[in-house]
């Protein structure tokens, strides 16, 4: 049996180093976004930016259109419920340069709200509707935040940790 957690006391951020492209990003991105308050961290082996939700559109505009970064591909928008706050995680990819970036924004758990990315990426549409559906995140500027996965009139946001799971019973 192999001990499944042989680096137990070290967090994974310290374990992995960035590859070339990641290091390049680590050097260029802070310069590009110097007018915004960002915090640089790691998500596994990828560079992660932690940003203020209100800067979202400005930052993504730069990241998408700047010739050094050119993140033209929005891979995924995930919403994670950390109980005290709700985190939105954007995974970005550049199809030409092949580098990746993770952008995170922490939202207030009571009234999570962030601007919508649909003006930049059409593909953000359903992710945001899903985020609204399951986590109750309000995406400002989204053209149509109707329920996507759940049926109309469903109450509550089942993605949240506070949403109770029904007891399993045989039937």
């Amino acid at each position: 049996m192999v001990e499944n957690n042989n680096n137990g006391d070290k967090s994974p951020e310290e374990m992995v180093t960035l590859d070339e492209k990641g290091q390049f990003l680590e050097q260029t991105v802070p310069g590009l976004l110097s007018s915004y308050e960002i915090e640089i961290g790691r998500s596994s082996d990828t560079l992660a930016l932690i940003i203020d939700p209100k800067d979202l559109l400005g930052i993504f505009n730069i990241l998408k259109h700047d010739s050094q970064t050119y993140f033209d591909f929005l891979v995924c928008i995930s919403v994670v419920d950390y109980i005290e706050y709700i985190q939105i995680v954007y995974h970005l990819l550049s199809t030409t340069k092949q580098h990746k970036l993770v952008v995170k924004a922490d939202l207030d758990a009571g009234q999570p709200s962030i601007s919508s990315l649909t003006s930049l990426w059409l593909g953000a549409d359903w992710y945001e509707r899903e985020g609204h559906d399951l986590f109750g995140v309000w995406f400002e500027g989204h053209p149509n935040l109707e329920p996507l996965l759940l049926y109309e009139g469903f109450e509550g946001h089942p993605g949240l940790k506070s949403y109770p799971l029904p007891e399993y019973k045989e039937w």
Binding site: M1, N5, K10, S11, P12, S44, T46, V102
Partner: peptide, 12 residues
């Protein structure tokens, strides 16, 4: 192990 406990962290 049957019950895995990966370290704290995130991965995509």
């Amino acid at each position: 192990r049957l019950v895995l406990r990966p370290p704290k962290g995130e991965v995509y």
